[in-house]
Simulated assay, not measured.
Amino acid sequence: MTPTSHRDSPPTTPTGRRPDESMTLLTSMMERPLDPGYAAAAERRVAEGLPASTGTRTATVAVAAVVAGLLLTMGAIALRAPSTSAAKAKAQLVAQVESRRKAVDRQEASLRTLQAQVEQLRGQALAQSSTSLQSRLEALDAASGAQALTGKGIVVVLDNAPGADKNSADGNPRTDAGNDEGKVFSKDMQVVVNGLWQAGAEAISVNGQRLTSRSAIRFAGEAILVNYRPLARPYTITVLGDPDNLQVEFADSAGGAYARALKDNYGIRVSIDAASKLTVPAATSLTVRAATVPRPDPSSTATP
């Protein structure tokens, strides 16, 4: 007889032991989910004639949840909504800036009206003077920018490169340093204007601002200032003179080469067009620091 192998014998269970004895912990958790301490406390309350639970747990949790929700909602609203005082201060500053700008425009218009009246009165006075004095005075007016001029010339327009005005992710243009190369700066305007003077320009204005020997082209924040007035792009440069000669001489000057480099290397938009009739206004900020009365020319005195 071949002995029976232990591997082939059926499993036997010791008497008095449960088949799932190794899973006692899981079985107790499934059969009695309540913690023994809580169960004992509930039994004591029932033995004393009280309900198994206080009955306020659900109401307390509900109230606490409502209060927490209100606090979170109020916090979110406070963070998302701008401060009332800051919004009022900003609105007041914007209103002041607009009011001052309108006042400056009104004063500038009044100044131009007064200048026209002065020109008319001066013309009446000069009608009685010599022709040489009138010619000299007209030449000085044209050179100093005290008189508006009309004639043929060219129009040079500078504008930022396409896409150079897009702000960064936070909406702040000052943090968008990647697009600065495509913007027109005051230095660019200075080089181009000096090149136009070198090319033989007789009179120049930028966005209606007449350039004189005392004009300043500066940069403040994100704006170009001419005669301390901010300009809006595109920047239109009106130049009086011979159109053909101006275009040829400007192309051969350092200013023309600089303008081509702005267009080719940085994508800045540059255009030059000839025009048969252009007008540059008179300067509005002419001041005289020192003046003397000229002595009469002895050679012009008539011999009796």
Rank of each mutant, 00 (worst) to 15 (best):
T4M: 11
H6G: 02
D8L: 12
S9F: 07
S9H: 07
P11I: 05
P11K: 05
T15R: 11
R17G: 01
P19F: 01
D20I: 03
M23I: 04
M23Q: 15
T24G: 00
T24A: 06
T24W: 04
M29T: 05
R32A: 09
R32F: 14
P33L: 02
G37V: 14
G37Y: 07
A39T: 05
A42Y: 03
E43C: 10
V46E: 10
V46S: 09
V46W: 07
G49T: 15
L50D: 08
P51I: 05
T54D: 14
T56W: 12
T56N: 11
T56C: 07
T60S: 08
V61W: 06
A62E: 10
A62P: 00
A62F: 12
V63H: 12
A64N: 12
A68Q: 15
G69I: 08
L70S: 15
L71W: 11
G75T: 12
G75D: 10
I77Q: 11
R80A: 12
S83R: 05
A89S: 10
A89C: 02
V94F: 03
V94H: 06
V97Q: 14
V97R: 10
V97Y: 05
S99Q: 14
R100A: 15
K102G: 11
V104E: 14
A109Y: 10
L111Y: 02
L114E: 10
A116S: 13
Q117I: 05
V118H: 09
Q120C: 00
R122L: 11
S130Q: 05
T131E: 15
Q134A: 15
L137M: 14
E138G: 08
A142I: 07
G145R: 01
A148K: 04
K152Y: 00
G153D: 01
I154K: 01
I154G: 01
A161H: 00
A164N: 02
D165S: 12
G171N: 08
G171M: 12
N172W: 04
A177Q: 15
E181I: 13
K183M: 08
S186Q: 04
K187E: 13
D188V: 00
Q190P: 05
Q190L: 06
Q190I: 09
V191R: 06
V191N: 06
G195C: 09
Q198S: 10
A199S: 09
A201F: 04
I204R: 02
S205R: 01
Q209V: 04
S213P: 01
R214D: 13
R214P: 00
S215A: 13
A216I: 12
R218G: 09
A220N: 09
E222P: 00
A223H: 11
N227E: 11
Y228E: 14
R229P: 00
P230E: 07
P234S: 02
T236G: 01
I237H: 06
L240V: 11
N245T: 13
N245Y: 01
N245P: 00
Q247H: 04
Q247P: 00
V248R: 07
G255T: 08
R260A: 14
R260D: 15
A261Q: 12
Y266I: 02
Y266C: 04
S271M: 02
S271A: 13
I272A: 03
D273G: 04
S276Q: 08
K277H: 10
S285Y: 07
S285F: 03
T292F: 02
T292H: 05
P294I: 01
R295L: 08
P298Q: 13
T301K: 10
T303R: 08
